[in-house]
Write a protein that binds this DNA or RNA. Structure first.
Lengths: 144, 144
DNA sequence: ATAATAAAAGATAATTTTATCTTTTATTTA
DNA sequence: TAAATAAAAGATAAAATTATCTTTTATTAT
């Protein structure tokens, strides 16, 4: 569905949100351990998230990553996916045709449209806040 | 969504079905031209489809690929996806956790379940026959 | 100011996926 | 039976993705 990079991006963001709700800033090392991901690779992805203003980053002692509480409920999964994997999951043809469109649809166009729209709706209406609350309440997990 | 290999597999199968409906066997070269794909790579994928008995293959003069008419209406998109990409699209966790399950769900588990079930239903209920008919009737296209 | 901390940036490496090329095997036609 | 045809199988190569390592920059505390 998504690239590994995007999976790690989503995991990271949810974890950072959870910790930011406890007013804790987290380091790359913390994050990689918490979400069970390769640290250096995760660092690269955090850079992208920071550049896209999805997370905040502070250098130096007591530095680390965070998300402002007031932004969490407006931050949607779709923004992370767009920043890391681009818009191909929304706009791309199911069979990979660049020329595929409503006017000139590929054989699976209309079948896929239903699923893609459902996915799009879900990503655009799921907030990082609600996902981090599930974690906090012990209903969901970010590791084994 | 799917790998390139799987995209080419689906395109190929639909094209072979369309031609088989006209009682025409098609060569690798025909297929690659018709679906706009790299020929040698497509050949490899056709081998897999043949091994999985999704398509029939005959060597030598007047050989090529085909699908028996009586099998077309029972052949589902899901069978092609399973043969080429495996079951990760159905069973895999949206965040890539191996340990994710109903009992120990990741934060997006239930959100993704809805979308994944919709996709699964679509793939398991869309036949190659119906997709090839859309092509035949000029309603859909496999090229620019 | 200096040392310590932590992320950013840049370079490099490993792995996987995509793609190609060559040789072999099966089948048909002359 | 020999030549031609077409897919199968095997080896190799290119590109993209995933992953790691090193150096630089910014910030804080001493």
């Amino acid at each position: 569905m998504f690239s590994k990079a995007c999976e790690y991006a989503i995991r990271s963001t949810i974890y950072i949100a959870e910790q930011s709700n406890l007013d804790k800033r987290v380091s790359i090392t913390d994050i990689a351990k918490a979400i069970d991901s390769p640290e250096a690779f995760t660092a690269k992805i955090l850079q992208q998230l920071s550049k896209n203003q999805i997370i905040d980053s502070i250098k130096g002692p007591n530095g680390g990553f965070s998300i402002e509480k007031k932004n969490m409920r407006n931050l949607k999964l779709s923004q992370i996916v767009l920043a890391i994997d681009g818009d191909s999951i929304y706009k791309g043809c199911g069979l990979g045709f660049k020329e595929c469109s409503e006017k000139q649809p590929c054989p699976v166009h209309n079948k896929f449209k239903i699923v893609r729209d459902e996915l799009k709706y879900m990503l655009e209406n799921t907030t990082i806040l609600e996902l981090s609350l599930g974690l906090k309440e012990g209903l969901t997990f970010l590791h084994r």
